[in-house]
Deep mutational scan, measured.
Amino acid sequence: MLYRITVRNADGEKLEIVVEMSEDEVRALAEELRKAGYEVRVEPIPEGEEP
């Protein structure tokens, strides 16, 4: 499935990426980023919607 991941650092800089991963993989990635001090938001992209 496609997911949009938005990551912000302490300075407020934002990075937005689209990935194709399983829900478990995305959850693990988000958890690791949060542990590293980043603010993370994950949104699933519905099938048929443009990323």
Results as ranks from 00 to 15, higher is better:
Leu2Ala: 06
Val42Asn: 00
Gly37Tyr: 12
Ala30Tyr: 05
Glu50Ile: 13
Arg41Val: 04
Glu23Thr: 09
Gly48Gln: 15
Glu16Asp: 07
Asp11Gln: 13
Arg4Pro: 00
Asp24Thr: 11
Glu50Asp: 11
Val19Met: 06
Ala10Ser: 07
Pro51Asn: 09
Lys14Leu: 13
Asp24Gln: 09
Tyr3Phe: 12
Arg41Trp: 05
Glu47Ser: 14
Ile17Ser: 05
Tyr38Thr: 01
Ile45Gln: 06
Ala10Leu: 13
Arg34Leu: 05
Met1Phe: 13
Val7Leu: 15
Glu39Trp: 14
Met21Thr: 04
Val26Ser: 03
Ile5Leu: 12
Glu23Trp: 05
Leu29Gly: 01
Thr6Tyr: 15
Met21Phe: 04
Leu15Ser: 09
Gly37Val: 01
Asp11Ile: 14
Ser22Ile: 10
Val42Phe: 11
Asp24Lys: 05
Glu23Ser: 08
Val19Trp: 03
Glu25Ile: 05
Glu23Leu: 11
Val7Thr: 09
Glu32Asp: 08
Glu49Ala: 12
Glu47Val: 14
Glu25Gln: 10
Asp24Tyr: 13
Asp24Ala: 07
Leu2Arg: 15
Val26Arg: 01
Glu43Val: 13
Glu31Tyr: 14
Gly37Asp: 01
Leu29Cys: 03
Arg41Ser: 10
Leu33His: 02
Lys35Gln: 09
Pro44Glu: 08
Gly48Arg: 07
Glu39Ser: 14
Val7Gly: 11
Met21Ile: 05
Ala28Cys: 02
Val40Met: 01
Leu2His: 06
Glu32Gln: 14
Asp11Glu: 09
Gly37Ile: 00
Arg34Pro: 00
Asp24Phe: 14
Asp24Glu: 12
Tyr38Gly: 02
Gly48Ala: 11
Ala30Val: 12
Val18Trp: 08
Glu20Asp: 06
Leu29Lys: 05
Met1Lys: 05
Lys35Asp: 02
Lys14Tyr: 11
Val40Phe: 04
Arg41Asn: 08
Val19Lys: 06
Glu50His: 12
Glu13Ser: 14
Lys35Ser: 06
Arg4Gly: 01
Met1Tyr: 15
Arg8Tyr: 15
Leu29Pro: 00
Pro44Val: 14
Glu16Gln: 09
Val42Asp: 00
Ile17Arg: 06
Glu31Arg: 12
Glu32Pro: 01
Lys35Thr: 05
Met1Glu: 03
Leu33Cys: 02
Met1Ser: 05
Leu15Ile: 08
Asp11Thr: 12
Glu39Phe: 14
Asp11Gly: 12
Val7Gln: 02
Val40Glu: 00
Asp24Ser: 13
Ala30Gln: 05
Gly12Gln: 04
Ala10Asn: 14
Ser22Cys: 04
Met1Trp: 14
Glu39Lys: 10
Arg4His: 03
Glu16Ala: 10
Arg34Trp: 05
Leu29Arg: 04
Val40Pro: 02
Glu39Thr: 15
Val19Ser: 03
Thr6Trp: 15
Ser22His: 07
Glu32Ala: 12
Gly37Thr: 01
Arg8Met: 15
Gly12Ser: 03
Arg4Ser: 02
Ile5Glu: 00
Ile5Asn: 00
Pro44Arg: 07
Glu25Asp: 06
Lys35Ile: 11
Gly12Asp: 03
Ala30Lys: 04
Met21Gln: 02
Pro44Trp: 10
Ala36Lys: 14
Arg8Asp: 03
Glu25Ser: 08
Glu43Phe: 09
Glu20Trp: 15
Glu49Pro: 13
Pro46Asp: 10
Ala28Ile: 09
Glu32His: 13
Val42Ser: 01
Val19Cys: 04
Arg8Pro: 01
Pro44Cys: 06
Val19Ile: 07
Ala36Asp: 04
Leu33Asn: 00
Ala10Asp: 05
Glu20Val: 13
Glu23Cys: 15
Ala36Tyr: 13
Lys14Thr: 11
Glu16Thr: 08
Met21Pro: 00
Glu16Trp: 11
Glu31Lys: 10
Tyr3Glu: 00
Ala10Ile: 06
Val18Lys: 07
Pro46Gly: 14
Leu33Ser: 01
Arg4Leu: 04
Leu2Glu: 02
Arg27Met: 08
Leu2Asn: 03
Met1Pro: 02
Pro51His: 08
Glu47Pro: 12
Glu39Pro: 01
Ala28Asp: 07
Arg4Asp: 00
Glu49Asn: 11
Pro44Lys: 12
Tyr3Met: 03
Gly12Asn: 06
Gly37Glu: 01
Met1His: 05
Met21Glu: 01
Leu2Gly: 05
Asp11Ala: 14
Arg4Ala: 02
Arg27Gln: 07
Leu33Glu: 00
